[in-house]
């Protein structure tokens, strides 16, 4: 069973979101990294770029698969996890510690669209059935 952390918010596209002030730390869930297998490359967005919700913003590649990350909240990229450039495997090692990027979100009402840990757990259980 994949690890889900109670304090975080989630999407059903397997992203986790941690809100701190006006900033959102965004990464992929344990379930997502397990599905993907050994990650060999993370394509990061550029700092300063502005994205709408649901825009494709980053992608993760394993040897035999590629997965797009869809931005959960509209806003501007203010930080990316540069250590992933040389060590993409960090996402496998600890997906919740290693965020992908940080967003200064512009539309707080979009936060209501995110789901909590219980709902996400139920969602991935439904997938595993």
């Amino acid at each position: 069973m994949s690890n889900v952390i109670a304090e975080l918010k989630y999407t059903n596209k397997h992203e986790w979101i941690k809100i701190e002030g006006g900033k959102a730390y965004i990464g992929i869930t344990d379930f997502a990294q397990e599905e993907l297998g050994e990650i060999v490359y993370v394509e990061l967005p550029e700092i300063g770029e502005i994205f709408e919700a649901d825009d494709e913003i980053a992608s993760l590649e394993s040897v035999k698969a590629a997965a797009a990350m869809y931005n959960p909240l509209s806003g501007k990229v203010i930080e990316v996890n540069e250590s992933l450039e040389d060590a993409p495997e960090l996402v496998n090692d600890d997906p919740y510690k290693n965020f992908i990027y940080v967003l200064e979100y512009s539309n707080p009402s979009e936060l209501d669209e995110l789901i909590n840990a219980d709902a996400y757990t139920a969602f991935i259980e439904s997938l595993e059935e």
Binding site: V40, Y41, E61, S62, V63, K64, A65, A66, A68
Partner: peptide, 11 residues
């Protein structure tokens, strides 16, 4: 190979 059509298909 993750760049390529047989994995990424339409992407």
């Amino acid at each position: 190979q993750a760049r390529e059509q047989h994995i990424k298909r339409e992407r």
